[in-house]
């Protein structure tokens, strides 16, 4: 597609969908709903807060209850999803597509996630961020596409007249392009998140080191620096821990059961019931060092073990938002024994 054709295609999609796209604002990149008159720019930079709220609301009602009976609340029908559906997530980087692949696995049997997913079209793009955290990012090649989950993918070729090369990854994607009347696309069937040789070797090395070469000095040092604010867990595109709790209404025996994202850095995360839940014996992650280790262990050990997908897409968001300058890439090098632990 030429620039012109691409803009027309987006305007065509706007008739039926709410479209969200990363936009450069004064200090950061944010995801915004696009207005019909404005042209869309596909950009290199990652939105500081990723796409996860579009697929899993940070807090949502799961059921209405009446006495002990629970009634499923569909995110599609009852708009518990704060954003109107159907939606198109446009300009999703390959990093964030990999995070979505992980969410797809973790919430494979989750009816709320799947309901939202069915009403969502994902349009990926090939531009990669260029900042100090980008050295871990693989250069984009078309052979990566069969391992990325998307409906439509745009390979951006800035110097070509046909600036956008279009791929489809799903029947939904094909249907939209056919309906628009552009048959000039290739199809890349999704074969799963990993290449034949397994997942990213560097990340696998981190997993091995976390499991078998534990160096307590790294975690004691992080335990002294981390202030447990939980910002990294909010910014991280793969973090998904949650709480389930009930909110009663004024009507007797009625209310909603809700799910809300949480952070493993919060004190109550590992507390169990007891006369004094704050007492050390009722809390299983007792120190900051234990909590930050738990976070790394989730991403580099449990996520790959549970879903066969690496839990870090190397976006660097956790480091960008960290108020005490914990740089995940430096810490990874310490875990791998490539950087001295002071």
């Amino acid at each position: 597609m030429t620039e012109n054709q691409f803009q027309n295609f987006i305007k065509f999609l706007q008739k039926d969908y709410n479209i969200y796209v990363p936009v450069k604002e004064a200090s950061e990149v944010v995801i915004k709903r696009i207005e019909s008159s404005v042209d869309v720019e596909v950009i290199h930079e990652l939105p500081l807060h990723g796409w996860k709220k579009f697929l899993m609301p940070s807090c949502h009602a799961m059921f209405n209850f009446d006495k002990e009976k629970l009634d499923y609340i569909s995110p599609v029908v009852e708009a518990i999803h704060e954003l109107p559906l159907p939606q198109i997530l446009l300009g999703v980087s390959t990093l964030d597509l990999r995070a979505m692949a992980l969410y797809n696995q973790a919430f494979e049997k989750d009816p709320w996630y799947q309901d939202i997913k069915k009403k969502t079209i994902i349009i990926g793009q090939s531009l990669a961020p260029k900042d100090k955290y980008s050295f871990w990012i693989e250069k984009f090649e078309e052979d990566q596409l069969e391992h990325l989950p998307f409906d439509i993918f745009i390979v951006v070729k800035p110097d070509n007249k046909d600036k956008y090369k279009i791929f489809t990854g799903s029947e939904d994607g094909q249907r939209l392009l056919d309906k628009y009347g552009d048959k000039n696309y290739e199809h890349a069937d999704y074969v799963g998140p990993n290449r034949e040789e397994g997942f990213d070797k560097r990340m696998n090395d981190v997993r091995e080191a976390m499991k078998n070469k534990h160096n307590q000095k790294i975690w004691d040092d992080l335990g002294r620096r981390c202030i447990e604010c939980g910002k990294c867990t909010i910014a991280c595109p793969t973090c998904f821990c949650f709480d389930i709790f009930d909110t009663p209404t004024k009507e007797k025996n009625q209310g909603t059961r809700e799910r809300s994202s949480t952070s493993c850095f919060y004190q109550e995360f590992s507390e169990v019931a007891g006369a004094n839940p704050q007492a050390s014996k009722n809390k299983f992650l007792k120190t900051t060092a234990e909590r930050i280790f738990f976070w790394y262990e989730h991403h580099f050990v449990r996520m790959p073990d549970d879903y066969g997908v690496v839990g870090c897409v190397a976006c660097g968001r956790c480091s960008k938002v960290c108020p005490v300058n914990i740089d995940i890439f430096k810490e990874i090098r310490k875990i791998l024994g490539q950087l001295e632990v002071k």
Binding site: A106, F107, D110, F240, C241, F242, D243, I244, C264, F269, S270, E271, V272, F284, H298, R302, D306
Partner: peptide
């Protein structure tokens, strides 16, 4: 342990 989901997702 503290539990929320019971099916190995929520991480608690």
């Amino acid at each position: 342990r503290r539990m929320n989901c019971g099916i190995g997702v929520c991480q608690h």
